[in-house]
Design a protein around this nucleic acid. Sequence first.
DNA 1: AGCTGACCCTGTAAGC
DNA 2: TGCTTACAGGGTCAGC
Length: 282
Amino acid sequence: MPELPEVEVVRRGLQAHVAGRSISAVRVHHPRAVRRHEAGAADLTARLLDAQITGTDRRGKYLWLTLNDETALVVHLGMSGQMLLGPVPNTNHLRIAALLDDGTALSFVDQRTFGGWQLADLVDVDGARVPEPVAHIARDPLDPRFDRDAVVTVLRRKHSEIKRQLLDQTVVSGIGNIYADESLWRAKINGARLAENLTRRQLGELLDAAGEVMREALGQGGTSFDSLYVNVNGQSGYFDRSLNVYGREDLPCPRCGTAIRREKFMNRSSFYCPKCQPRPRR
DNA sequence: AGCTGACCCTGTAAGC
DNA sequence: TGCTTACAGGGTCAGC
């Protein structure tokens, strides 16, 4: 559920509070939350102790806190991760709790345990400084240096369905199932079409649509269907009221009135308008 | 080599 | 009523 706009809402909330703070205590409550930190929970805890947080950054769905020793605390929210500021929440989904030097707790809560924290070195990739685990992630559409035409060129070479490519974070990052469906609807493209069969213009418009829909969602605090996705204060966004196709099976297409259709796709669902976004012939 | 699909996980809700 | 099954889905990787 947290895609780029939701992660950016969290990053902004963290930036405002944690920049300049140092960490005075850390406790890992669930080993799965640090499974990507190969040196283990004890190493992560020891290295975070007394570290100073110099800032925050994000690429796609990854966010990280930069630390004064030139490393970064990489955070991925997975499906249900929350970064909460304030008192340590009383929930059995608490995975990690850190205490800041101003007495605030920074807690990682994650019901489905797909998310986690890891410490990593920063590396230079294509003119950007990112943590090593983020090195393979492409720039996202909200990155000032996002190269739309270069991504179009990559997509034109793909013998694969366009929706699958939109979800491939090494092609373009930040887009998940919700914003993929919304972008395809805006661009009037069926996600089952092969990327190689779309024109450069269509692919360019699709990437523009992805940038637009994520910017709009960010302006509304993100999308949420339940209490799983929240900002650092535990509040939900309300972009779900602005969704045109996602989760709207059998409801009328806001553009043409045709009933929205739902199909199985990659162990999840795709929503589309069968008239605005006709299926490719097979 | 490029691509596909199964898997990890838990809470909620629908179905029998 | 209570149990079983389906579903939500980001990222990884075995295997085709």
